[in-house]
């Protein structure tokens, strides 16, 4: 166990996943309440184009992911109609365009650098190969985002319950929604770097869905969701580390363990509530 904790890649992975899990756990609660799971997923997929771009141009992956995540928010603002009914299709269109961009950039990666494993690294995550300074930056970013989220938590909760009530109370819905989307983009970007762009959604929605089943009040739900996300990530890393010898010559992906733990929590929360 000590050997496990002293390994540099493991330390980075633990830090990075903690940052992603804590931020996504809190964001996920609002994402589920606001019905924006698809938008969150689309933002993660769009940010993957940044991951591919950073490989192509040799810049920091954090920067690449973030750049495209924020660009995704701009795209969503342009595409999304005012009425809630059309939000689903707008998110889908953005996702298609974003993945199209990823396809192109990955294509250039393969043709210019001949790097074959890039699609896998970008889409399914490569947290064990993250440089340690990136992990530190991610922690700072997650802390900052959590602080902003705490700042807007109350108006956001009110607006998520009923927009009209919030408007009567003087909440500026549009600005609030935009800030939340930006936070969401940053959150899924961190998750995309941890478990990969496609599985970022699991880290965003899984803990929150389980938390919603158990907690009564909003603060409890947020804290529980954050804790569950962290437990799944760290548990997944430990399991992935332990699994090296299970089948000789074969590796078990850490993303699988994280998602499996999250789904386990979700199912257990359902049983617990019924009991």
């Amino acid at each position: 166990m000590l050997e496990f904790l002293q390994s540099g890649p493991v330390q980075s992975a633990l830090l990075l996943s903690a940052a992603a899990a804590l931020l996504c756990g809190a964001l996920g609660l609002f994402t589920v309440l606001r019905g924006q799971a698809f938008a969150g997923h689309a933002l993660a997929d769009v940010s993957s184009a940044g991951g591919a771009g950073s490989l192509l141009f040799g810049i920091s992956p954090l920067l690449g992911f973030l750049l495209f995540g924020v660009a995704g928010v701009a795209g969503l603002e342009i595409l999304q109609p005012r009425r809630a009914a059309g939000r689903d299709e707008a998110a889908g269109i953005l996702l298609g365009a974003g993945l199209g961009g990823t396809a192109l950039l990955l294509h250039f990666c393969v043709t210019t650098h001949g790097a074959a494993g890039t699609a896998q690294a970008v889409m399914f995550g490569a947290m064990f190969s993250t440089p340690s300074d990136t992990a530190l930056w991610s922690c700072l970013l997650a802390g900052g985002c959590l602080a902003v989220l705490a700042l807007i938590a109350r108006p956001l909760l009110l607006a998520s319950l009923d927009e009209e009530l919030a408007r009567v109370a003087g909440v500026r819905l549009r600005a609030l929604g935009l800030v939340f989307l930006l936070l969401l983009a940053l959150g899924v970007t961190l998750a995309a770097m941890t478990v990969g762009a496609i599985l970022a959604t699991a880290l965003l929605i899984g803990p929150a869905a389980a938390g919603l089943r158990l907690a009564r009040g909003p603060l409890a739900a947020a804290l529980l969701s954050m804790a569950l996300g962290l437990a799944a990530c760290w548990g997944g890393i430990v399991l992935a580390y332990e699994s090296y010898g299970w089948i000789p010559g074969r590796t078990w992906p850490v993303s699988f363990f994280i998602v499996a733990l999250l789904l386990l929590f979700y199912a257990a929360a359902g049983l617990r509530r019924r009991a």
Partner: peptide, 23 residues
């Protein structure tokens, strides 16, 4: 039904739901 908001939380939001920061 799965909304993690108790009756008392909802009433509290009427008091200061438009304010920034945690209560």
């Amino acid at each position: 039904p799965d909304l993690p908001v108790r009756a008392q939380d909802f009433v509290a939001l009427g008091l200061d739901g438009h304010r920034f920061g945690l209560a």
